[in-house]
Design a binder for these strands. Structure first.
Lengths: 202, 202, 202, 202
DNA sequence: CATGAATGAGAGTTCATTCAT
DNA sequence: TATGAATGAACTCTCATTCAT
């Protein structure tokens, strides 16, 4: 998005300003929705003038994208670094997945509206869509590599991991939002976890 | 103020007009996005005046909702009536699921942008979200009933069906959109089908 | 206002229809204000179609005027016929005026919003203004004549009567609406009555 | 949604702009009527864009109200400051009232349509009505105080003053507008003046 | 660098009036 | 005669973007 006419701030105060616009702008967009947030509000929330916004960003859309780059990971993918430090094997796999899901759900609950709004944009805005596609494939690669390092040898492991990520996304979303009264989400989660183990170890 | 009741057209030409507004309006919304489609365009596409739109609908949002009611099923859930006429058992289950996925994908491809835009709205618009939640639970119930009738006796069958629907949604979407170059979608589909069978018959 | 293109209904049912439009249309206009009442509402209230309204009236404004002709007198000038049957003299004048004011106020209270809306129109709409000017002068003439018949011989009686009518209008309006908390309206009314007697009998 | 605060202009040019909108907007409203004046016209007359209008005013109605605050006094109550500097007594009272009426009429004639339109609004718009009620009571208080200071000791002086203000309003309006051909307005004015003297000195 | 006033196109919606039936 | 669907200009108000200071 950003092109040459958009200043790349060098001085410290400028950088801070840009960061504030991204932070508070993205925050507002997540809370109220992209179309229900206007640039004046963003500027106000960031403590800058409306004019200066257009020195750092080509347009409103650009703020969204920059916000994504900064914050999407922390919103969508909570830190699960602990899996780097332990040995994953068929015995502790179930427990690890359970913990990951638990962390994802906790995260999801923390920023429900952000999750929804950004998911919505991911389905209606090309740039946002691309961002997430790239993120997903990267995550798939990382997890696949990790599992391989830990001795998982399933055929088509990458495809399996991709399916698993989808399952986790889905169960989290279901648990946080849907609350269909006849569905027991704990039960559902247990089944999903079993299934994930099955996919990865078969 | 004005009489807010929305006319329920009785005469044939009126009904046709209302239908046209729904059809072309929803079409435009799906193609260009809800926020990028204005009422004047909708009226023009439907071959009517802007004023008459507000005789049949309370507002622009209402057109979206009516469009959903009319077309969501055909967009999201292609006719899979054939499963009503055959006996489903563990032997043909895999084949049936494969056919269902195939149909869903075909459907999905036919109206890619509609799928995306409506999915987006389902994540940002309360009414659209409700619509889909209700649809989903209904579908879960119907499929669960069908399987029970055919002798499937898994514990927590409803939860399993719900997971399966999520898996199908996901694999279709993946297949139609993502095209991550390192992922083999045929392989992925096969794994998903196996997994679905596993979930339902375990 | 009405011109040749507007049908003068001859048949009984037509006349009834026209009357209903006038009655219910004027009623709505008085209740909600001319600009807040639309022709569709008027037609609905009158139980006719919107189209037929334009067979009997040149436009919306015409309905207002016809309504005025039919109902303004009863709204603004309650029947004070009793003064035709009694002899007015300096002894009973005060009592008669008191009764007239009392009747006017009662009337005023019965149709507060009508009073206000029509008074507003009388100040912003030429035709309505003319209507009231004519009414006022006629009333001035009638009352002047009546007083003369009863032996009142003040110089410039017509001008005096005109002032008196203004005073009555004013005290009624004050009593019904203003309610300035520091003003005693009973006291004010008594003073006005004394003054009217003074004007007419000096 | 958007930030609804209305900007309070600080810079000189902004203040001028706001004043222009009030001046020309109110002028148009007075000339053509509130409902027959649109925001585009107001903006054009003030030499600004339509958008900026909504930076300074919450809505069209707000312009009317601000206009009232600025101009109502000069339209409705011409400066009669001279009465503060002279001693009012029963000997010069008649002459003073005559001068006041003369000034009011002169004023009234200068802005006939404004007078009428605003009077109309005072009967159909709650905020305008309140504005005038408050103005009236204040004027009543001021005049009552002035007369008391000058030794007028009538019982119920406030009520008397209130009646007098009504009489003055009325005679001015009559003189400027009605022109009923059979009424002699000079005569009528003389009678009114006598009556006012009578009310205040009795 | 920064401001925030200013722009003006465009949004959704209403409604007096017309006209095909 | 009568209907009420249809028109489309006009309305108020918003907001991404620009620009004078």
């Amino acid at each position: 998005m950003s092109d040459n006419t958009v200043r790349e701030p060098i001085q410290k105060r400028s950088i801070e300003k840009k960061e504030k616009i991204i932070k508070y702008g993205f925050e507002l967009i997540c809370e109220k929705g992209y179309y229900n947030t206007n640039t004046a509000e963003i500027a106000k929330a960031a403590g800058v003038s409306t004019g200066i916004v257009y020195s750092y960003f080509t347009d409103k859309h650009d703020i969204l994208l920059e916000g994504l780059k900064r914050f999407a990971n922390s919103i969508f993918y909570p830190s699960v670094d602990f899996i780097n430090d332990i040995e994953i094997n068929e015995n502790n796999l179930e427990q690890i997945i359970r913990e990951i899901i638990s962390k994802f759900i906790k995260n999801h609950k923390l920023s429900k509206s952000a999750h929804e709004e950004i998911t919505a944009m991911a389905h209606s805005d090309k740039d946002v869509a691309n961002f997430f596609h790239e993120n997903e494939i990267e995550m798939t690669n990382v997890v696949t590599g990790l599992l391989k390092k830990n001795g998982f040898e399933s055929k088509d492991l990458m495809e399996r991991v991709h399916i698993v990520i989808g399952l986790i996304d889905n169960i989290c979303h279901e648990t946080v939002y849907h609350k269909h009264k006849n569905i027991n989400y704990d039960t559902m989660t247990n089944i999903v976890i079993n299934e994930i183990v099955h996919i990865l170890t078969k």
